[in-house]
Simulated assay, not measured.
Amino acid sequence: MKFVFDHNNINVLDLEKSLAFYQKALGLKEIRRHESDSFTLVYLGDGVHAHQLELTWLKDRNEPYELGDNESHIAFTVDNFEAAHALHEKMGCICFENPEMGIYFIHDPDDYWLEIIPSRS
């Protein structure tokens, strides 16, 4: 028996705002969508890996999600760390930097943290 990663899920308050953020900040594109009366699921991909990020939008939700201490995160590697940092700085979404480790974090419109790591090739 072998298990393989398929996707991660996060809930978002404003689907269009989140889609725009993930497109601009990380270049993710919508792969597929499932709509129902009460929710919408949008799967995003990077065009390279099969792994996807699922955004869940609950149509009747109006209050922000409680993220606790926000210790969980999703990590992305990037081939041009300096250009990515400049883009995220311009977007105003950098929320924490760790120069000693050579990484930084950005946060999305719902305050989920996303780790940015330089490619180590």
Results as ranks from 00 to 15, higher is better:
N9V: 08
V12Q: 09
W57M: 03
K2L: 10
A83C: 03
K90P: 03
E115P: 02
T40M: 00
L26I: 07
D60A: 11
L41N: 14
H73I: 00
D110L: 01
I94T: 06
D46F: 07
H85I: 02
E35P: 05
E35I: 02
V4M: 04
S121F: 13
P99D: 12
L19E: 11
S121R: 15
M91F: 11
P99C: 05
E82S: 14
E63G: 05
V4I: 13
D79Y: 13
D46R: 08
H51E: 15
S121T: 13
H85Y: 14
D46N: 14
A75E: 02
G45W: 12
E66N: 10
V78L: 15
R32G: 03
I74S: 01
P64I: 05
D111C: 13
V12A: 04
L28A: 03
H85D: 02
D111G: 02
G68M: 01
S38G: 09
P109T: 14
N98T: 07
I106Q: 00
Y22T: 10
P64G: 06
I117D: 04
I106G: 00
E63Q: 14
V78H: 12
F76L: 07
Y104A: 02
F96V: 01
H85M: 12
T77H: 13
L55W: 09
K90V: 11
C93H: 04
D37P: 06
D110A: 06
H7G: 11
L53W: 08
L15N: 15
L53A: 04
